[in-house]
């Protein structure tokens, strides 16, 4: 109970600090908001990936597909009814949640590398569909006119960053709840041994479908504000490999067994990428991810959380 209270006090403080920073001119340079948006977006994406990959042990290589369909759903809503952001987010989440459910039905009988290949193929299929769908701009892409301001935030990017902060806190709270709930314990059992889990009374297929739906929902939510953030979306950028790679690398670096792992990984790696963007080259992003990932997989396979537990934790 005390842990829960501490978490919610911390979450409240983070949101309050975000609100303060985004509604005042304490930070004058808007670059920091652009950069923070990307890092927070990766917190949501990495947390969503970790529900399947970390808790359940099913590696999803199709994160970019879910993220992009979240973004494209927002574009469809914008083209149809000029929907505001707060309408785009839940609808994108629902569309991607249903997509996750469908993917689950189609692929969850596969395991290991076959499941991973199935999810990768899904992203390729979805990209091909978007390239050929003129309503959302096809291969040339679609423009979304971002409002210049939003009160009381002033600059619309500040508003977007604050919304992404709230989404990140919500995603992390959901992951933390899952971790402590019967549902999460069921996912851990599936990760350890699926047949044994089924034979101890765990309805593995149902749990896996809930996990893919929830993970898809959060990835869609992460993608929904993307068109308003960049103002122009085309398939190559929306389905960019970087989303899939980062969604995997960040939890692996932070640690996949706990909600804090993807947050630590996203903040460290996301910040390093943003700094590299403006100091060295944006092309170095994936190289940084690759190098750090190789280092962690070989030297600290349980991520930063695992290292902390090893050196400071209780030896069970």
């Amino acid at each position: 109970m005390a842990g829960m209270r501490r978490f919610w006090i911390g979450a409240g403080l983070v949101i309050a600090a975000g609100l303060l920073l985004s509604t005042t001119d304490i930070i004058a340079n808007s670059f920091w908001f652009f950069a923070a948006y990307v890092v927070l977006q990766y917190v949501v994406l990495a947390t969503a990936w970790n529900i399947m990959g970390g808790y359940m042990g099913y590696v999803n290589f199709g994160s970019a597909g879910f993220f992009a369909i979240g973004a494209y759903t927002a574009i469809v809503l914008y083209n149809l009814i000029k929907a505001p952001l707060l309408v785009m987010i839940p609808i994108s989440g629902i569309v991607c949640g249903l997509m996750g459910l469908g993917m689950g039905y189609l692929t969850l009988r596969l395991r290991g590398v076959y499941f991973a290949i199935g999810t990768l193929a899904l992203a390729v299929v979805l990209e091909t569909l978007m390239v050929n769908w003129d309503y959302v701009g096809g291969a040339t892409g679609a423009y979304v006119i971002r409002p210049r301001t939003m009160e009381p935030f002033g600059d619309y990017v500040k508003f977007l960053t604050f919304v992404m902060l709230v989404l990140a806190v919500a995603a992390v709270a959901a992951a933390r709840w899952i971790e402590r709930a019967k549902f999460g314990r069921g996912l851990h059992a599936i990760r350890d041994d699926e047949l044994a889990a089924e034979c101890t009374g765990i309805p593995t297929l149902r749990l896996k479908l809930v996990a893919t739906t929830l993970s898809g929902f959060l990835m869609g939510v992460a993608g929904a504000p993307f068109p308003l953030y960049v103002g122009y979306v085309e398939p190559v950028s929306a389905f960019n490999l970087a989303y899939a790679v980062n969604a995997i690398a960040m939890p692996m670096i932070g640690g996949t067994t706990m909600w804090a792992g993807p947050v630590i990984g996203a903040v460290l790696l996301g910040t390093a990428q943003q700094i590299a963007n403006v100091t060295i080259s944006s092309e170095l992003n994936l190289l940084i991810v690759g190098l750090v990932l190789v280092l962690f997989v070989t030297l600290a396979p349980e991520g930063i959380i695992g290292l902390v537990r090893k050196y400071f934790g209780r030896d069970r």
Binding site: G186, H188, C199
Partner: peptide
């Protein structure tokens, strides 16, 4: 099972607790 299949990342107590939770 012929070859024991515990939930390896969990403690002995957790192995039993999750079984009790879901089976009963």
């Amino acid at each position: 099972f012929q070859i024991p299949r515990p939930f390896k990342s969990q403690t002995v107590r957790e192995n039993l607790a999750i079984t009790i939770e879901y089976a009963t």
